[in-house]
């Protein structure tokens, strides 16, 4: 895989100033009011969890579930790393919201033509080579922007340099196949409300393993059903004809299916 952009969020450094969510609101032209939870007008928030401040936002999975479940392909995992959303395609089935392992996508419930809303990792800015609005705004370097592989290496370096200060896990390195938003925490991630039962396997293969069987299923079952129909109904027709003529009377094997139906159905006598 090509090198991708990512965010590293170090919870030990976060001071909870909320500059990231403010900058996000400005960059995405959202109403400026500070919000406590993610919403259709808040793509990232800073939440107080005990003694710590934790950002919530789209994790931009390496193999994103939303991209895989959207029937019309409204979501896209861009080459740079961000997972983007094309509202013009969206039909509003909200499967992405049900399926997302982090329950991130939000819906414009009050709109008559609602769209799904979530962080898109400032994909336009990233494409131009700039960093995301949130990482640019962070005064404490709690959120840093960079190449995913370098950020992972940096995260492990921080843990090894200060093993007492960090919980020994880079959350997002492997979760559900890896994400482009990485977290470092001073305590167990479960204590901060992170889902810790996700496993390291990406979710899209769960449905793809079923879906990829469909073409074979259709062909095989079609042939089996057609064959069964032919065998069973052919026997019935032959029996009927035998019954009529009062003797065993082998049929001409070359009759086509449609002729036979037609005869059996309408003009056999």
């Amino acid at each position: 895989m090509d090198r991708q952009r990512a965010l590293l969020i170090d919870i030990t450094r976060c001071v909870g100033c909320g500059a990231c969510s403010e900058a996000c609101k400005t960059a995405n032209k959202l109403p400026p009011e500070t919000e406590k939870t993610l919403s259709a007008t808040a793509y990232t928030v800073v939440q107080e969890k005990g003694d710590y401040f934790v950002r919530d936002l789209c994790r931009h999975c390496q193999q994103p579930t939303c991209v895989s479940v959207c029937p019309v392909g409204a979501f896209e995992k861009t080459a740079d790393g961000p997972v983007t959303y094309d509202g013009d395609k969206c039909i509003g089935c909200r499967y992405c919201m049900t399926a997302c392992p982090f329950s991130i996508p939000r819906y414009e419930w009050t709109s008559r033509a609602p769209l799904v809303r979530k962080c898109i990792m400032c994909s336009e800015r990233v494409k131009e080579g700039k960093m995301t609005a949130c990482s640019e705004a962070c005064p404490a370097e709690a959120t840093v922007f960079g190449w995913r592989d370098e950020l992972i290496a940096d995260a492990h370096r921080r843990i090894s340099e200060n093993p007492d200060g960090y919980y020994n896990l880079v959350y997002g390195e492997n979760e559900v196949g890896g994400t482009n938003v990485l977290f470092l925490s001073p305590v167990n991630f479960a204590d901060l409300g992170f889902p810790t039962n996700l496993g390291n396997a990406a979710l899209p293969p769960l449905t793809w393993e079923v879906l990829e069987k469909i073409p074979n299923f259709v062909v095989a079952s079609g042939v089996i059903l057609g064959g069964l129909w032919w065998l069973i109904n052919r026997r019935a027709t032959v029996d009927e004809l035998r019954h009529q003529t009062g003797e065993s009377h082998p049929q001409h094997p070359g009759q086509s299916a449609s002729t036979r139906t037609h005869q059996a159905g309408g003009e056999s006598r």
Partner: peptide, 25 residues
């Protein structure tokens, strides 16, 4: 139920073969 039901025909033209929802549609 759909948020944008006037686009209910979208799955005919925009198809994501990895989506079970496309199969459903």
């Amino acid at each position: 139920d759909l948020g944008r039901p006037w686009y209910i025909w979208h799955p005919i033209f925009f198809r994501n073969p990895h989506s079970v929802m496309l199969e459903v549609a």
